[in-house]
Write a protein that binds this DNA or RNA. Structure first.
Lengths: 137, 137
DNA sequence: CTGTATCCACAGCGATACTG
DNA sequence: CAGTATCGCTGTGGATACAG
């Protein structure tokens, strides 16, 4: 349903692979869902908004090295996928608040587990990386 | 043969990390761990190897639209981070087997939960996307 | 304050050809 | 079979300036 098969060759390959395993691109939502949240800033913003709603400038201060352009774009992409919603307050200098939807929270539940793992095993990954780089090569 | 040029990417990465070591989010686990597995092929290969070991060509057949170059590179990156290991069998046509380490399995546990969520909510995401695209823009 | 609009650099990825 | 080597395109993301 999701995957776009470009040519016949790949289609045949996909069907052949389909017979043995369901790990395929054709019916695999991994790509469509994981790719957007695999962006450089998505998870950071999601974990920020999972806590509580924030305004544009607040998010910008929380992630100091994000450009204005990427903050806008990433927020829009997250909104597009239904994870967050945007509310504009017509105050004197306008302010915009972003808040995580219940759908977003349902995504964040397993995502948080993964981020937890990352936090706990960050050191091990760095060690493995160093070991690999200094050995062999 | 000198191996100086082979690991250019990794060396550059190291230098870049070094240069910004004292910046706020340079050592953030989310970035260091999530970025690599956020690549286009990483999660697909991880979920394949989580099941059982596979050879290079098998993986290639399971993910028909990956290029040979990206398969090699992604596997190497996963190996570098300690998630998978590589074993060469000196058979007549040489064969190489990739297998997930216990560390990789510990990563895959929370990751699988996230992939499960993606599979279950894939449709909702696509709907949200379509809704967003047809309104406004 | 919250964006848009350009321009531009570079990393990621693909296609192809070659090797042990 | 399992890679390397090269080239080139494209998308992502950064810097800057402008605007509601």
């Amino acid at each position: 349903m999701s995957g776009k098969i470009v040519n016949m060759r790949q289609k045949i390959d996909a069907m052949r692979a389909d017979a043995s395993e369901d790990l395929n691109h054709a019916n695999c939502p991994v790509r469509e869902v994981m790719q957007p949240i695999g962006g450089k800033w998505s998870t950071l913003l999601l974990s920020a908004l999972a806590e509580k709603p924030y305004r544009f400038g607040e998010l910008r201060r929380m992630v100091p090295d994000i450009s204005q352009r990427m903050l806008t774009q990433t927020l829009r992409d997250l909104q597009r996928d239904g994870y967050i919603e945007r509310e504009v307050f017509p105050t004197k200098p306008p302010s915009v608040e972003y808040r995580m939807t219940s759908f977003g929270h349902s995504l964040y539940e397993p995502l948080a587990k993964l981020l937890d793992w990352a936090a706990r095993n960050h050191a091990s990954v760095k060690e493995a990386r160093a070991r690999f780089d200094s050995s062999g090569v």
